[in-house]
Every structure is written in structure tokens, then in C-alpha cells.
């Protein structure tokens, strides 16, 4: 599967703005993190096509999905 991964805030310092990842069918968010070497504790908001995974690292990915990853953030 071809997955587009977008990184934000200080994650960009390490991973750049965007990555194209190839993963086997049936891969999950956990598999993606393993492949790009991203420790889960550096992240807080993970969206797949704009929908939050709600902390479920076993969220299944499909071909052409876009994953947006943010570290912990605050605001007003």
C-alpha cells in the first residue's frame, strides 16, 4: 500500500514535512510508526484522512491513505 505521511510542528525537525511510505496490506498505525522509527510518545494527535485514531494504534490502513501526525499541542 502507498501511504502519505504528513508531519507537523517539531516532528518536522526530525522527519521533514512529508513522507511517502510503502507498507504491506493490512498494516496498522503501529506498523507505520515502526517503519518510520517514530516513538509513539512523541505524538499525540494522529489522523487518518482527517479522522482521529482516538489512540487506537491498531487502526488499519488502506492504500492511498493520508496520515497526519502531531506532537502534543496546546492553544486557545
Amino acid at each position: 500500500m502507498n501511504i502519505k505521511v504528513k508531519f507537523f510542528a517539531d516532528l518536522r525537525n526530525r522527519f521533514g514535512k512529508e513522507s511517502a511510505c510503502r507498507l504491506p496490506e493490512g498494516s496498522t498505525i503501529a506498523d507505520l510508526f515502526k517503519q518510520v522509527e517514530l516513538p509513539e510518545e512523541l505524538t499525540r494527535i494522529v489522523l487518518v484522512n482527517g479522522k482521529s485514531i482516538e489512540g487506537n494504534m491498531n487502526y488499519g490502513l488502506c492504500d492511498k491513505d493520508t496520515v497526519s501526525i502531531f506532537p502534543p499541542v496546546g492553544g486557545g
Binding site: 507537523f8 510542528a9 517539531d10 502531531f70 502534543p72 499541542v73 496546546g74 492553544g75
Partner: peptide
């Protein structure tokens, strides 16, 4: 120790939310 108040807010301010809310729709 908090990654929000200790790291994200000093580095990006609240403006970090532009991309957050945009990705969410």
C-alpha cells in the same frame, strides 16, 4: 515536564493549531 507547556507552546505558540484544525476539517 509537560510536552505542551514545556515544548510545543514556547516553540510554536498557539499558532500550531492552524494545521491541526485544518487537517481535521
Amino acid at each position: 515536564d509537560s510536552p505542551v507547556t514545556g515544548k510545543a507552546l514556547p516553540a510554536y505558540g498557539t499558532a500550531v493549531l492552524v494545521n491541526v484544525m485544518n487537517e481535521y476539517g
